[in-house]
Each structure stands twice: as structure tokens, then as C-alpha cells.
């Protein structure tokens, strides 16, 4: 494989990785604070993508479409928290996880009925702009995806680290009872975690559909599972870990496709995830131990 092509592939890997990072953070906001896998995130991401896509096709400017996708996913995320999670907060972890699965089935059915099961395509001219960098060229859309992802991760990291809200989020993640004693209203914080998680998933959905220039109702599941792997590799509670792990897995995928055949890539990605869980459960960058999860 030529060096140019390799570099081109690397850029693709980075773009994919940027989207993985966003979804991984979406998972980890709920997971880090509540200890549950919100399986509906995969479909929030898909719905966000469709909403953004529809607006773009209708001629809305990109930022509007992105914002609309984010808001739609966030609104759904709040509904899921209220109906699917809150009444089950004291049940074994498996129960709220399956109720989020119920929502994911509903959302996927909804998308199939609203938009059909065939892929929607973006008009070709929208993505034609490419910026040449020596021998490789980077699509304007790719640049946008990577840039938007970085901005959002930075914003999230800022919120978590430096704001009162962030401190409250961390306190609830650490110990819900102690947080309550400190005067943090845990139920409101959980809603906010779902809200932020939805915003990120929605953004990722719009961005990845721009990257592929197409979207189907089934885009959520595969990408969602990968994002879980990214979350684990980066460390469940590490914001910056996901920023490192996303591109890493994106690149690893592109590299295995280039050198080992396209089908082996999932084997490598999940193998890496299991390895991290076993030898470095706190994720690549360290931090809180993640092998002492609550009981199922």
C-alpha cells in the first residue's frame, strides 16, 4: 500500500474515531454515574442523525441541523430517563438496561416507519469540497467532523472539571448517598447526565451521517457496540481517555482492514477491549478502578 493511500486511510480512521469518541462519552456519562449501559444510546445517535439529515436535505444550514439533531436526541434521552430508568433505579442493573433496550426497539421501529429502511443519501455536491494537503486531500466534511468532535469533548471536559454542575456530576458518580448529604439533588443530576449524553449522541449521529453521506435505521447498533469498546479502552470515567481511545480504535480498524482483511477488524477491536478490561480495568490513562462494578 502506498504511503499516500495509507495517510488517506489514517484520516478516515481519525474521522471515524472522532465519532466513536462522542458516542463513547455519551455512554460513559450514563455509565460512569449510574453504572448502567444505556442501550438506547445507539438509537438516539441514529435518530439524531436522521433529524439532522432531513434538515440538511431540506436546505437548512449545517449548524442548525447539528443543533436540531442534538436537541432531538437529548429530548428522547430525557424521556428514557423519566420512564425507563427512574422508576427502576433501585432494581438490579440488568432491569433498567433492558428497559433502555425496549426504547431502542421502539426508536428503531419509529425510524424505519418514518424514513424507510433504505439508506437516505446526501446530494453529492454537498460533500465535493476537498482541501488538498500535499498529495492527500481531506474532505471539508471530515474536517468538520473532527473539529466538531474536538470542540465538544473540550466543552464537556470543561463542564465536568471546572463547573459546579461538573462537581455535582462527579460527586454523584462517586457516591450517590454522600452527594445527597452534601446537598446535591441527585435526581436532577441524573436527568442532566442523560441530557448531556443525549446531546453528544445526537451530535455524533449528525456527524457520522455527514461522514458517510448516507444513513440507515441500522447504523446505531454496530457503531454503538464499537463505542462501548472505545469507552472501555479509554477508561469508563475518563473524558480525555475517550478522546485518545476513539481515534486509536478508528485507526486500528482502518489498519486491520488495510493489512488483515476487513472482517478481522471486529476481532481486533473487541479483543483489545477484553484485554484492557482484564489487565488495565481503569482504562489506558488510568484513574478510577472499573472492575468493582455494582452487582447486576
Amino acid at each position: 500500500m502506498s504511503g499516500t493511500l495509507l495517510l488517506q486511510q489514517a484520516i478516515n480512521g481519525l474521522t471515524l474515531g472522532a465519532v466513536y469518541t462522542l458516542i463513547a462519552l455519551s455512554f460513559s456519562l450514563v455509565m460512569g454515574i449510574l453504572g448502567i449501559l444505556n442501550l438506547a444510546i445507539a438509537e438516539l445517535f441514529m435518530i439524531g442523525g436522521y433529524v439532522g439529515f432531513t434538515l440538511i436535505i431540506a436546505g437548512a444550514p449545517l449548524p442548525v441541523a447539528l443543533l436540531a439533531g442534538m436537541l432531538a436526541a437529548a429530548a428522547l434521552s430525557l424521556v428514557i430517563e423519566k420512564i425507563g430508568y427512574e422508576p427502576l433505579r433501585n432494581a438490579p442493573l440488568i432491569t433498567p438496561m433492558l428497559s433502555t433496550l425496549g426504547f431502542s426497539i421502539i426508536l428503531q421501529n419509529l425510524a424505519t416507519n418514518l424514513w424507510g429502511s433504505d439508506p437516505l443519501q446526501l446530494p453529492g455536491d454537498m460533500l465535493a469540497t476537498r482541501i488538498a494537503l500535499g498529495e492527500v486531500s481531506i474532505g471539508a466534511m471530515q474536517l468538520l467532523v473532527i473539529g466538531a468532535a474536538i470542540v465538544m469533548v473540550a466543552a464537556l471536559a470543561f463542564v465536568i472539571r471546572y463547573t459546579t454542575l461538573g462537581r455535582a456530576l462527579r460527586a454523584v458518580a462517586e457516591n450517590r448517598d454522600v452527594a445527597r448529604l452534601l446537598g446535591v439533588r441527585a435526581d436532577r443530576i441524573l436527568l442532566i447526565a442523560f441530557l448531556l449524553s443525549g446531546l453528544l449522541a445526537g451530535a455524533a449521529g449528525v456527524l457520522i451521517s455527514l461522514h458517510y453521506a448516507a444513513i440507515t435505521p441500522y447504523i446505531g447498533v454496530e457503531t454503538g457496540l464499537k463505542a462501548i469498546a472505545v469507552m472501555v479502552v479509554g477508561g469508563v470515567t475518563r473524558t480525555w481517555g475517550a478522546l485518545l481511545a476513539g481515534p486509536l480504535i478508528g485507526l486500528a480498524e482502518v489498519a486491520t482492514v488495510a493489512y488483515g482483511g476487513s472482517q478481522i477488524r471486529d476481532f481486533v477491536v473487541y479483543g483489545l477491549m477484553i484485554l484492557i478490561l482484564l489487565v488495565r480495568p481503569q482504562g489506558l490513562l488510568g484513574g478510577a478502578r472499573s472492575d468493582q462494578g455494582p452487582r447486576v
Partner: peptide
């Protein structure tokens, strides 16, 4: 044995996907 709760669940999820991929 090294993993508990949802972390074990995620590791087994990874195992399942590895088998499918195999």
C-alpha cells in the same frame, strides 16, 4: 473472575462479538 457486574457483562459482550467475527 476478575470482573464484576457490568464490566463482566461488557467483557462477555466482547467475547460474543469476537466469536461472531471469527
Amino acid at each position: 473472575l476478575r470482573l464484576r457486574g457490568i464490566y463482566l457483562a461488557m467483557a462477555t459482550l466482547g467475547f460474543g462479538e469476537m466469536v461472531r467475527s471469527f
